[in-house]
């Protein structure tokens, strides 16, 4: 049984349909990358998984249980946490307070402040600073740390590399093996295809709200990805 299973997932913003029957699975300990152009439905898909976009109850199963109609707070308590696009730290809260907000759901697990500070030592130095006063890369570390504090079984990362310098992206993704070391699954939404291929075991490409390609990262060719990404077939 897959840890996360979305079946025939359709999502709407008012009358506008954004997802058209997406099928998607994540196994325990797996790193899956979701790629696709702007407007392909990647972020909507993550919002549907986390309860921010309402979908039918049985359209998303987590550990075999339907979570499609649950509120976001209930979904994080079940074990699905998200690093939102654009980081969205709380401006009124310090770095440490932002991290502590992640633990609000109260799930037990290995991640606590000490472990996060060991992984990102700069955050300990700046723990009393306002979260939004940090550099983009450091803010991304806080956003990842905040999600990890929920001790999720599945970590959903929306556009981690957005607006960051390549060296910073490398530093952020270097933390991934430590995150997955104890069996946590990770779903990474990425526009940067090369980064997505490098960090994931499996890639799912979305195009106009539909899955246009799926396969092992090591097995897919550049041509296949280009065709699925842009919808241009030779």
């Amino acid at each position: 049984m897959s840890l996360v299973h979305a079946h025939d997932l359709k999502a709407f913003y008012g009358d506008a349909q954004a997802l058209f029957g997406v099928d998607f699975r994540v196994e325990q300990g797996e790193v899956v990358a979701i790629i696709g152009a702007n407007g392909a439905g990647k972020s909507t898909f993550l919002k549907a998984l986390t309860g921010l976009v309402k979908v039918p109850r049985d359209a998303v199963l987590f550990d075999g249980q339907p979570i499609g109609s649950l509120p976001p707070g209930e979904i994080v308590k079940r074990g699905l946490a998200k690093v939102p696009e654009g980081r969205r730290l709380f401006p009124s809260l310090s770095v440490e307070e932002n991290l502590l907000m992640g633990a609000f759901a109260g799930r037990p697990g290995p991640w606590d402040l000490a472990r996060l500070y060991a992984m990102f030592p700069i955050l300990k130095e700046k723990r009393l600073n306002p979260g939004t006063s940090l550099s983009g890369g450091q803010q991304q570390m806080v956003a990842i740390g905040r999600a990890l504090m929920a001790n999720p079984s599945v970590l959903l990362c929306d556009e981690l590399s957005l607006g960051l310098a390549p060296i910073v992206i490398q530093e952020i993704y270097a933390a991934l093996p430590r995150i997955t070391a104890e069996g946590m699954s990770v779903v990474v939404v990425e526009q940067d295809v090369s980064v997505a291929m490098r960090v994931s075991q499996r890639v799912v490409c979305l195009q106009e709200g539909r899955v246009s390609l799926e396969g092992a990262s090591s097995a897919l060719t550049r041509e296949q990805i280009s065709a699925a990404y842009f919808g241009v077939y030779a």
Binding site: L52, G73, A81, R88, F90, M101, F104, A150
Partner: peptide, 23 residues
């Protein structure tokens, strides 16, 4: 206090605060 953090968090960004498990 934890409640104060919750007050500030929902005031800053309600959607993200709810993603953290707050109502």
């Amino acid at each position: 206090t934890k409640l104060g953090r919750a007050f500030r968090a929902v005031s800053d960004d309600r959607e993200i605060a709810e993603l953290m498990g707050l109502s």
